[in-house]
Design a protein around this nucleic acid. Structure first.
Lengths: 226, 226
DNA sequence: TCCCCAACATGCGAATCCTCCTTATCGAAG
DNA sequence: CTTCGATAAGGAGGATTCGCATGTTGGGGA
């Protein structure tokens, strides 16, 4: 089971992390909201746990953003704020559970397990890569952007899959040739450029934000902002 | 939205019922565990709320029984017992959330809503046809026999899908032409035979038991025994 | 600042592969 | 022996992949 823990309070981190790992959970950490969001979209967790008060994007806003982007992963919010108003606004932001500090680890663990056994998580366990409103299911080989299904050829799919496995990373044409075409020499052609062009026509054209960007002389990169 | 409320304490019933109905929820009531279980299995609720201490089967046991019978509906347990042990055992019995009395109605409502927005029922609709060790997923369009993935062309898939939708039934070539090729006249060719042959090569050849059988002069049939 | 060249984008089309279906031939059932 | 079914072979048409030629753009040097 994979869990993402977004928290900046050292004491809480230590106890939760240790406890989770003793229960055989694989824990990814984020110490601020922005890192948390990136990880949440990039990887496929069974549960996400976030403190409300963290540096950067706070827990409530994080929930809203993730839900707006279609992420279905169960979210458990932690907070020192125990007022009904706080709980209500957390749950209305899209969280699935809300736990007030201080709490016993056993209750935390029981709630995390309850979230993980949801059928949503089972379905999520299929390999879905996300980047903004673009999603690629490695299992069903379905690609969608803003809800609209996109039809890719096998080679186009392989290229997009490679890009989405390394979001925000500059990928040189040599790297792409190696991983997508499986050739480690220069073919002397511009296949990569041709296929990047194909992908842009299908994935970027007609949508508001471009996701595939060129870094002159360096390669290509998949990211959100222009 | 439909909710089942299992509770015997008059005061709680009154406030919850009234509040839920003001939020446009349709409320079914049970005053004891046995009635609750019967209703839960009989009808299709979005959320089930149960007090732990009710006459007859108690809330914990109710959870276990419902889960054992495969019911996926989210369950919220209510209780005056606020100890960690109580919460943990409730969640481990299969509940999805646990709320300690007394609570404010707004928090209760927020938690119920959080449970109701789960995609549970949506994804339950897994469209898989099975025949012996052969399975065909109408949604992902994946076909497997004895765990081995089989690659079919669209036409082959349509033919196998038609056969699997009518297991054990004799299907004449005319019927197959109509349903799979959408032609209601005799094309004068033997397309059906050719495609049955393709299917046999991929689906039957190399496996111990044949599934596609010929009924001379009548048509084809999908069944187990030779 | 301007110019040029390398880097990149893109239109076009050839080669290849996949899918579908037909035809022809052979075997089996009744 | 006649009819029905199995199977091999191959062509039409479309999708896919890739190369090439020609625009277009970025950025470093004069």
């Amino acid at each position: 089971m994979r869990i993402l823990l977004i928290e900046d309070e050292v004491k809480t981190i230590r106890s939760l992390r240790q406890g989770l790992e003793e229960h055989q959970w694989s824990v990814d950490m984020a110490y601020d909201g922005d890192t948390g969001r990136r990880l949440a979209l990039q990887n496929d967790y069974d549960v996400i746990v976030s403190d409300i008060i963290v540096p950067g994007v706070n827990g409530l806003e994080l929930c809203r953003q993730l839900r707006r982007q279609g992420l279905k992963t169960p979210i458990l919010l932690l907070s020192a704020l125990g007022e009904t108003d706080d709980k209500v606004s957390g749950l209305e932001a899209g969280a699935d559970d809300y736990l007030t500090k201080p709490f016993e680890f056993r209750e935390f663990m029981a709630r995390v397990k309850a979230l993980a056994r949801r059928p949503a998580a089972v379905f999520q366990a299929e390999q879905v890569l996300r980047m903004a409103d673009l999603e690629l299911d490695q299992h069903t080989r379905l690609v969608r952007r803003a809800g609209k299904t996109i039809n890719l050829t096998p080679r186009e799919f392989a290229l997009l899959e490679f890009l989405m496995r390394h979001p925000g990373k500059v990928l040189s044409k040599v790297e792409i040739s190696e991983k997508v075409w499986d050739v480690d020499f220069d073919t002397g052609t511009n296949v990569v450029e041709v296929y990047v062009n194909y992908l842009r026509n299908k994935v970027d054209k007609g949508f508001d934000k471009r996701l595939i960007h060129t870094l002159f002389g360096q390669g290509y990169i998949l990211k959100e902002e222009a």
